[in-house]
Amino acid sequence: MLYDLITRFGLEYISPFNLFRYITFRAGAACFTAFFLSLWIGPYIIAKLHKIQRDGQPIRALGPERHIKEKAGTPTMGGIMMLFTLTFSTLLWSDLSNGFMWIMLFVTLGFGLIGFFDDYQKLAKRNTDGLSKRTRLGGEFLISAVAAFGLQAITPPDIANHIALPFFQNLMIPLGYFFPIFGMVVIAGFGNAVNFTDGLDGLAIVPVVIAFLVFALIAYLVGNAVFAKYLFLHFVPQTGELGIFCAAIIGAGLGFLWFNAPPASVFMGDTGSLALGGALGAVAVAVKHEFVLCIVGGLFVVETLSVIIQVAWYKRTKTRVFLMAPLHHHFEKKGLSESKIVIRFWIVAIMLGLIGLATLKLR
């Protein structure tokens, strides 16, 4: 919004308005805006959620026993706070003529809406069932498909239907008509992967922030012809602006962590986890770094695989591979404290983020 106003009146070359020409400046401003806005409105939103929900988020009866005692009464739907702050910050600091930004907001808010209805159903029924799997997945795949086709349409034709491989210089694999299906699976898949990871105070939000920090840099490099050529990356015009979107999510995520730090005052719920995961998948598809996302977001991948393995193995043998799935609950059942699990998972996320960054140079 500010960028568009400044360029409309031709002020972008006049100091100090010339700062708005730089994505790095606007990304930093977006991050700080989302963070401080979260601190400002957070107490009000949490108080409202407390008042409306009363008994807070329903706790899974078959989960770790201490959750029923320690987390009972904690409100959910804290993702509303993040959705508001990241949307406001993105619209305030980004170039509104950039099609990539609108697709990112479409996915984020669309997945957030599905998560909101899922959380609402859980609160209304006072159980952990929520929306039916068919309804939820149907909505996710519909939004993901629209986004994938949209990204295909605004990406240059020579790379629109291609995916890139890490560690190889300018190597891209053409998928043709299958690209939208691939993009749809990545977006919906990571939406659910982050959702599976969100089970302990602060567990999901820090790896999400780390992943978006990595992809803010990737988007900036891929969207810059000079840097892309130097690093042997494929150049995707206008994706540099996605660095502002990623920065807004980082600020919103850190602001949410302020209230979600143990013991959590609020949970993000599916409203937040689905939205953040979907946004992460959409950014990766836009910048053609889907496989790097599997490295950077490896923690989310492992958490999802633990659920798939547990369900498949139990249906086949009636026995369990893990004491409980997702994986973080397995470690809880083994007696590890919540803080130790969360911090160790953060460490893993940091290391995976560094490996993901290394792929930009190791080609």
Rank of each mutant, 00 (worst) to 15 (best):
L2T: 05
Y3L: 02
T7E: 03
R8P: 02
F9M: 02
E12D: 11
E12A: 14
Y13F: 15
P16N: 08
L19C: 04
L19G: 10
I23M: 03
R26G: 01
R26N: 00
R26D: 01
G28C: 03
L37R: 00
S38K: 05
P43S: 10
P43T: 09
Y44W: 13
K48D: 14
H50M: 15
P58S: 07
I59E: 01
R60C: 14
L62T: 13
G63R: 03
E65N: 09
R66T: 15
I68N: 11
K69M: 12
K69V: 12
T74F: 02
P75W: 10
P75V: 10
L83S: 00
L92A: 12
W93C: 00
S94A: 07
D95M: 02
D95G: 05
S97A: 12
G99F: 05
F100T: 04
M101C: 09
L105C: 04
T108P: 02
L109F: 04
G112I: 04
F116A: 13
D118E: 03
D118F: 03
Y120I: 12
K122F: 09
A124D: 06
K125C: 15
G130P: 11
K133W: 14
K133Y: 11
L137R: 07
L137Q: 07
V146A: 12
A148N: 04
Q152V: 15
I154L: 11
I154M: 11
P156D: 10
N161P: 13
P166M: 06
Q169C: 13
Q169R: 14
M172H: 14
L175K: 10
F178W: 15
F178P: 08
G183D: 05
G189Q: 02
G189S: 04
D198N: 00
G202L: 07
G202P: 12
A204D: 06
P207S: 01
A211W: 00
L213C: 11
F215L: 01
L217H: 08
F227N: 15
F227A: 10
L233F: 10
H234K: 15
F235G: 06
P237F: 10
Q238M: 15
F245V: 00
F245Y: 05
A247R: 01
I249W: 00
I249Y: 02
A252M: 08
G253P: 07
L254S: 12
G255R: 03
W258Q: 11
F259S: 13
N260W: 15
N260Y: 15
A264G: 06
S273M: 03
L276M: 04
G277V: 00
G277M: 04
A279K: 03
G281A: 00
A282K: 03
V292D: 04
L293I: 06
C294Y: 07
G297D: 01
L299H: 09
V301D: 01
E303L: 02
V307F: 13
I309F: 14
A312G: 14
A312I: 14
W313G: 13
K315F: 08
T319L: 10
T319C: 12
F331C: 07
F331L: 14
G335T: 05
L336A: 04
E338C: 02
R344T: 10
F345A: 06
V348A: 12
A349Y: 01
I350L: 13
I350K: 12
G353D: 01
I355C: 11
L357S: 01
A358H: 11
L362Y: 07
